[in-house]
Amino acid sequence: MADKESGRARGGRRPSGALLGVLPFFVYVTIFLIVPTLIVVIGAFFSQGSFSMVNIKALGESAVKTALWQSVILSLVTAVLGAVIGAVLAYAVSTAREGGIVKRFVTSLCGVLAQFGGVALAFAFMATFIGSGILAGLSSESGGLWLYAWNKGLILVYLYFQIPLMLIVFLPAVEGLRPQWREATETLGGSTFTYWRKVAGPILLPSFIGALLLLFTNAFSAYATAKALISQGTPLLPLGIDGALSSEVVLGQQDVAKAMALEMMVVVAVVMTIYTILDKRASRWLVK
């Protein structure tokens, strides 16, 4: 609003004509982004057309609470493990020759695994560990049921896209480390340990935590892999929303889906806000 006013105050060019140019964009995002978001946020507080806290209260049910809890734990564990392993991998890749085949191969592979995962990843793990899979022998006693457990198999499967994502997000930060910094440390008598403890570590820390948060939201909002892997029960929040949305038996479940969606949005928004703040801090060292 303020922008429009100041434009008008400066006089000169007529802003109203110029505003027409961005109208299509704003109409589009209003229909397909703003209104849907508002439907979730406002709809969570309405039940069967009238204001009520029923849906929000439904979030307190043990099934929903368990789903949220398990989603958070799964995301946290895979984010931390993925970030640590991915960071080590990123450092290893950063020491490879720029433009060399190793770097191209690993970054392309990670690009695919991080972005295309979904259904295919679930199949990959089922084909490997279930039935006549090559590693089915490892889990013959339980019949491979561990693969479908949120605190066992899902962690492994999620790591399969978290580690690649970490490489993609963190590699630029590691490559921003300048050899001169290490040389300066050495000239001043510092060991490799000093370099990591006092120079590289502090520089990389904001990027590392930022990437970790990104991994958290990535796992937290992941739906495809879990859906393809788990056909019964709703151990995770996205599956809970799915269940509530497609439920035609219980009236008002659609509204509960909105409340659960709002809950997800709040968690992701908090994490993304911290991420934005850290990202600004991180770029202070890495830009130029």
Partner: peptide
């Protein structure tokens, strides 16, 4: 309209904080 840069950027980056499954819930009536 350089004054709108921040608004457009904010809107364009907004989907990052709205997981696809949440968007589905809002898009159903649409």
């Amino acid at each position: 309209l350089p004054g709108l840069t921040r608004t457009v950027e904010f809107i364009c980056l907004l989907p990052l904080t709205v997981p696809a499954i949440v968007l589905v819930v809002g898009l159903t009536p649409i």
